[in-house]
Amino acid sequence: MHDSFRRGIRLGVPFAGVGLLLSLSFGVLAVQTGLSPFQAVVMSAVVHAGSAQFAALSVVAAGGGVLPAVASGGLMNARFLAMGIALAPSLPGRPAVRALQGQAVVDPSWAMASNGDGTFDRWQLFGATVPQYAGWLTGTALGAYGGDLLGDTDRFGLDAVFPTFFLALLLAELRDPRSRGVAVAGAVVALVLVPFTPAGVPVLAASVAALVGLARRR
């Protein structure tokens, strides 16, 4: 347990650095959109999902209300349904206990905790999420409360962090022959749909490839 948890922390630190830059951008943009710095930090603490937070923020910036923003964020997070289904057998306890443990699922942690045989190391998952969560909150606070010092975030290239982040995850999966086909299928589905569908739909559709791969393994 302790070795897995510590290994997870070590693996999560590089992703925490990426998340800090991404959440820094979110904090700045959230305040520019109309949220207070405190609201931006609370949103990151509760949601901790970059794609969902940026999707909700884009709806608010476009003049949408709370419900459309929540729906947009929920659509972006729908991929966690497939990830949760795959993870569930590796989590002990009653449904409520498993659901609580499942709150540690973020994309890098889920991928790094996979044992490659359909099972997951839950303590490595927990450990990998700890530095990422800390980095996400820290970046959001820095961006929200110190955004005036940064000005236009685009000139720092922070808008490119998010796609680069997911590309790194994809490349990691491509190195494993057992998951290569699923990774390629998901990438193709997402790339085809990006120009024609609303934000969130490509990720949701790509998760179907993961479900198909899981079903075939079983």
Rank of each mutant, 00 (worst) to 15 (best):
69 A>L: 02
190 A>C: 15
43 M>I: 14
8 G>D: 10
128 A>V: 03
163 P>Y: 05
81 L>E: 03
204 L>H: 00
112 M>D: 13
200 G>N: 07
146 G>W: 01
106 V>K: 00
215 A>Y: 08
30 A>W: 00
212 V>P: 12
89 P>S: 08
34 G>C: 04
34 G>P: 06
131 P>W: 00
18 V>L: 15
53 Q>C: 08
19 G>H: 12
209 A>P: 01
4 S>L: 10
82 A>I: 09
82 A>V: 13
109 S>C: 10
168 A>H: 00
162 F>W: 08
188 V>L: 15
128 A>W: 01
141 A>I: 06
153 T>W: 02
189 V>C: 04
134 A>T: 01
1 M>W: 00
167 L>A: 15
142 L>C: 07
182 V>K: 11
78 A>Q: 00
136 W>G: 11
63 G>F: 06
91 L>Q: 14
27 G>C: 05
66 V>K: 11
97 V>H: 08
176 D>P: 03
2 H>Q: 09
79 R>C: 06
79 R>S: 12
175 R>M: 09
111 A>G: 12
137 L>E: 00
36 S>W: 01
96 A>E: 02
87 L>D: 00
105 V>A: 12
184 V>A: 14
36 S>L: 14
51 S>F: 04
159 D>E: 14
158 L>N: 12
129 T>W: 08
76 M>N: 06
85 I>L: 15
62 A>E: 05
59 V>D: 02
5 F>T: 04
52 A>P: 15
162 F>P: 07
134 A>Q: 05
150 L>Q: 11
22 L>R: 04
144 A>M: 05
65 G>R: 03
100 L>R: 13
1 M>I: 04
71 A>I: 04
206 A>E: 09
168 A>W: 02
158 L>T: 09
136 W>R: 13
171 L>T: 01
144 A>Y: 01
162 F>T: 15
114 S>R: 11
143 G>N: 06
93 G>R: 07
106 V>F: 05
189 V>D: 06
211 L>H: 04
197 T>K: 13
60 V>I: 11
83 M>C: 04
193 L>Y: 04
116 G>F: 03
122 R>Q: 11
97 V>Q: 12
100 L>I: 12
81 L>A: 11
40 A>C: 13
75 L>S: 09
83 M>I: 02
71 A>K: 05
156 F>V: 11
60 V>D: 00
130 V>S: 13
56 A>R: 10
207 S>A: 15
94 R>V: 06
16 A>L: 03
65 G>C: 10
4 S>V: 05
85 I>K: 03
153 T>P: 10
205 A>F: 00
